[in-house]
Design a protein around this nucleic acid. Structure first.
Lengths: 204, 204
DNA sequence: TATTATAATGACTTTATAGTCATAAGTCAA
DNA sequence: TTGACTTATGACTATAAAGTCATTATAATA
């Protein structure tokens, strides 16, 4: 690597670092090229010497956030023998990685779930609705725990969110794969699938 | 209700309907007040006679999308006796409702998962990364099925997405509730929690 | 040191879109 | 029919932020 290249890469990296920091602090929706230049201590035009455009910055921020994650996890997981051990390691390593890149993932995840076009106050009412739903489920879970059917170490509210996320993931999966109109039977079988996975997961 | 009120409400509803339609077709990020007025066949100023501002429109669109969902589900669920039956019914009714409001939920869900600030092409590479990860998990699941440990009716890829969504939901839950820095032990116990739920869910 | 090449600057241009408001059209009671 | 009131219009304004480019500063080279 020549020195020029190294300087160029350093600047690239330092701009990227500023971008990550800003996005981690204020989210994607408040991220502007002016703020970026300002935070990096350079002129706006300079940013465009290192990045094609704003999208290019965002893409690199995301790329850097997920950089290494996959390789590191795959490496750890491949060292395990049984499917169960692999899954246990995968979950742990994933949580660890998320925690190591806490500010980045916090923003990405919260931005993902917050219908970012809404004003703060409307986002709150949206999240409140979600929470109310999770609380409704948590009452059912609590009852199951009290009756001794469900694992007694479950966090009922968190379990409620888990179930919601399974349902949503199922819907998204089917939105993306099923071009065809899906009928009542398909819905029924999908519901049973989620039910069997979730119930066995929470049952004693 | 006087006739004026009824007219006003009809117009309110018809604008809302246009908004839902547009958002369902093009997503939140492409939704503009000009398009809305145009689609509703009225002048832009008229929209502002029925809605305070854009946020007010969006809020009403979301509200209308989730309208009745909760009450309807709660009603059905409350008719069931055991926690297990309640959960089965809840899942089915939820999937049914999502399907009945397919276009609305499709947009909301996909917008949620698509880092909307990215250009289409960058979103695709982002989704590809997610898919690659799910595929990695699906290989583990397949192995578990082959070995007879896991339920043989599992869709491995979908199960991969399920696990990712559980991990993510856990992270979000902890981001929102744990103000404190969380240490390695907490991460370990969270990982074990997810592991126990997921493994029992997929195991025979 | 002088000349050329490279990097950086930031004022300016462009664009998109939210929101406004003077004007016009429509409605209805007296 | 008139005039007061309500509703609707869309050209216009305001604003935010992306992206540009002529100019200037810095570094490399002869």
């Amino acid at each position: 690597m020549t020195e020029e290249e190294s300087i160029k890469i350093n600047k690239f990296d330092s701009i990227l670092k500023s971008a990550r920091k800003l996005i981690g602090e204020e989210g994607f929706s408040n991220f502007t090229m002016d703020k970026l230049a300002n935070n990096a201590g350079i002129a706006k035009g300079t940013v465009y010497l290192y990045f094609k455009n704003k999208n290019d910055v965002l893409e690199n921020v995301l790329k850097s956030g997920f950089q290494n994650m996959f390789e590191r996890m795959a490496h750890k997981v491949n060292n395990e023998k049984t499917p169960e051990e692999k899954i246990r390691t995968l979950i742990y390593e994933n949580l660890l990685y998320i925690n190591e890149n806490k500010y980045f993932f916090k923003t990405v995840f919260l931005d993902e779930m917050n219908v970012v076009f809404l004003k703060k106050t409307s986002q709150e009412s949206y999240n409140l609705r979600r929470k109310k739903y999770a609380e409704f489920i948590s009452e059912i879970i609590k009852k199951g725990i009290d009756e001794g059917i469900f694992k007694n170490w479950l966090n009922p509210l968190k379990s409620g969110f888990y179930l919601i996320s399974l349902i949503k993931t199922n819907a998204i999966y089917n939105f993306k794969t099923n071009a065809v109109e899906f009928d009542e039977n398909l819905i029924k079988s999908e519901a049973i699938e989620i039910y069997n996975i979730f119930i066995d997961g929470v049952k004693n």
